[in-house]
């Protein structure tokens, strides 16, 4: 169980996450959705201990969560310049005994001996994902993992997520596109104005879009009709 108690995160005085109270079941896939600026990335950064809570705590297995518990695939991937994909992967200690770099690089079509600068953004995302999969972590955070992936790679990612779930890992996945989350998530949590407004279980997934975009669509439509 991952428990979030009274979580408040402020950045430069502004409250980004506002008093989040939530409990997430382990070994399940949790989707995180929200409009731009709702606080999704801050939520992920706090879960992965990149940001420290201004107040409150995150509990995992009856102790404060640590970055050692988490494999974090960030939305934008940065790499050290002038190193090859293979060298990048080799920086990480292999704690996942099943990790097979040869098979995975062939599957993902990654030219591991080329400098990372020559990679497309989709290839960079896949490389970052391989580095994370090399490590055996109980929790995985994927922030916008489907961005810049082609159809094949998106399918591979879906299969990776299913595989991690089978291995009893807990996953948090954010996406702007709700359709990408529907087939893979057990729960989808809606973040609005820095707090988890609602949690949807599988049979409620078709009402998420209305909940998320209902009001926005109405006001956007009237602005567009008046302005164009």
């Amino acid at each position: 169980m991952i428990q979030i108690v009274d979580l408040i995160v402020k950045i430069k005085g502004a409250v980004i996450l506002n008093n989040i109270q939530a409990t997430f079941e382990e070994s399940l896939v949790h989707g995180i959705v929200g409009l731009n600026g709702a606080g999704k990335t801050t939520f992920f950064n706090t879960l992965s201990c990149v940001l420290k809570p201004s107040f409150g705590r995150i509990i995992f297995k009856d102790r404060p969560i640590s970055f050692k518990d988490i494999g974090y695939l960030e939305s934008s991937n940065f790499f050290y310049s002038n190193i090859t994909g293979r060298e990048y992967i080799n920086i990480f200690e292999q704690t996942n005994p099943d990790f097979n770099i040869l098979a995975l690089s062939q599957l993902t079509n990654l030219p591991l001996d080329n400098l990372i600068e020559t990679y497309s953004s989709g290839m960079k995302k896949k490389l970052a994902m391989l580095a994370i999969l090399k490590q055996n972590k109980p929790i995985f955070l994927f922030d916008e993992p489907f961005n810049s992936l082609d159809i094949e790679s998106s399918k591979i990612l879906e299969l990776v997520i299913a595989n991690l779930k089978d291995k009893q890992k807990t996953l948090f996945i954010s996406s702007h596109i709700i359709e990408t989350l529907v087939p893979i998530c057990d729960y989808i949590h809606l973040i609005e104005k820095g707090t988890i407004k609602k949690t949807f279980c599988k049979n409620e997934f078709n009402s998420i879009e209305d909940e998320l975009l209902g009001h926005f669509k109405q006001s956007a439509r009237s602005i567009i009709n008046e302005s164009i």
């Binding site: 050290y80 293979r86 001996d113």
Partner: peptide
């Protein structure tokens, strides 16, 4: 930058944990 000398086999001499040196 991509035109820099690639030195593919340099990682056989310098371990990836010294990535600053591989790059530099």
């Amino acid at each position: 930058k991509v035109n820099y000398f690639r030195l593919k086999s340099i990682s056989r001499i310098i371990n990836s944990s010294r990535f600053e040196y591989l790059s530099g």
